[in-house]
Design a protein around this nucleic acid. Structure first.
Lengths: 117, 117
DNA sequence: TTGAGGTTTTACAGTTTTTTTACAGGTCTT
DNA sequence: AAGACCTGTAAAAAAACTGTAAAACCTCAA
């Protein structure tokens, strides 16, 4: 079965309650934001098409030109702070994808320049 | 049924998602590029006439003078790097053909020039 | 009913992708 | 070798899509 919880280095989300924490600070999310985040987290690493999000979260079917989804994505990104743009990736012409945070193994360069001993 | 995946020494392509990798690096392909590549890979080793590509990927029917196909072929070749011209062959007056990569058995010459012992 | 918070729409700016244009450069036939 | 076709390419134009702020619209509890 699906895990009841998402958790990584920075972000935590409880699917049952919709409670989220970012860097140990509770995130205040509205209901739609929770549902949207849940959809993305529930499919982490995979592209979720706009159409699917609009259908599952909003119940919209068929094509309809609304910016609602974009606005909600924006608010989620904002509440995720600096990580917003890292976590939520835009797939042009398709939808969005949540990418789990991964601590970089090395610094910004290609590896340890010097042995520490 | 058709295979869900193309894979050789250098190139990898997933027909379902359209995700491609070249020499282990993910290739960033636009939708049309994905569709075009899929058509070529799905018929690897066989000539796919321009008309067929224009019809299947673009929905163009009848003759129409557009350079769209050529431009997209060019972009695909470019993203395939040095292999672009090897993979995608132009069949003059007909169309294009994707040729699977084959590791050369010997060096650039016609065979071992010398016995190694 | 009122207003405070939540949601959707509007309007337009900014991006990215796709198509067209305009030629240069090949290829084939005679 | 010349002319008729085809393809390659860069750059411009057009189309498609997303980001954003702000206003309008709901809804529900007090």
């Amino acid at each position: 079965m699906a895990p009841a919880r998402y958790q990584d280095e920075h972000l935590t989300f409880d699917f049952a309650s919709g409670a989220a924490h970012c860097d140990s600070q509770p995130m205040v999310l509205t209901r739609k934001e929770q549902e949207l985040l849940a959809m993305l987290l529930g499919n982490q690493g995979e592209i979720v098409p706009r159409q699917v999000l609009l259908s599952r979260v909003w119940g919209y079917h068929l094509e309809c030109r609304t910016r609602t989804l974009d606005v909600h994505i924006r608010r989620l990104r904002k509440k995720l702070g600096a990580l917003g743009d890292i976590y939520i990736e835009t797939i042009f012409g398709v939808g969005y994808r949540f990418q789990r945070y991964r601590e970089p193994r090395y610094g910004p360069s290609f590896g340890p320049a010097l042995a520490t001993a």
